[in-house]
Amino acid sequence: MNTLSSAWSWLTSAAHWSGDDGIWHRLGEHLFLTVVCLLLSCLIALPVALVLGHLGKGGALAVNISNVGRAVPTFAVLVLLLLTPLGTHGQWPTIIALVVFAVPPLLTNAYVGMREVDRDVVRAARGMGMTGRQLLFHVELPLAFPLVLTGVRIAAVQLVATATLAALAGGGGLGRIITAGFNLASTPQVVAGAVLVAGFALLVEGLFEIAQRLAPEWARGRMG
């Protein structure tokens, strides 16, 4: 196919890899956004989910927040944030939107993981005289870890996707190559950008898959 070969030659031309609009720079931006926002979202979501799961409260909120997150279009949130006064503060609208969409899967999975811990085990631990803190860190969290990790994995993939969309609303990252391609009406560039984005997303998913397979038995996910 002609488009594929032109996309390939676009990808392999050295000029497209260097400079401020180059692939390396955009890849760096994408990676930076993904990693920083994943850390931020974990810092926000995991403590809340673990405490709620430990206390067994706020279940409806923790479970439904994922459904709400799905109903709200990512693109709409990006544009809404861009038009608020925040829009003039560089990357902030993008970062906030990324965190907003990464928190729900983290919260829901960690909460469900905590609640699915065998109640008999929890009762036994209490009977042994464990304090709430010991119970949380030495019993519940290790047992809930596979689902927590699944949440992190879903959030990471979600972050890569949202960071791509951010390009539509003027953000940085690999999506910029695609939007620039559309503006130039250059199908090869659009396809080349899409291949990069898809490759990056699959790489992130693949790394989590490998990490989960290499992890010790107790940390492995149960979901395929």
């Binding site: 791509t164 984005v197 898809a198 699959l202």
Partner: peptide, 9 residues
């Protein structure tokens, strides 16, 4: 896993 913008592209 493929982001929507990339899928459409």
């Amino acid at each position: 896993t493929i982001p929507s913008l990339a899928m459409f592209s």
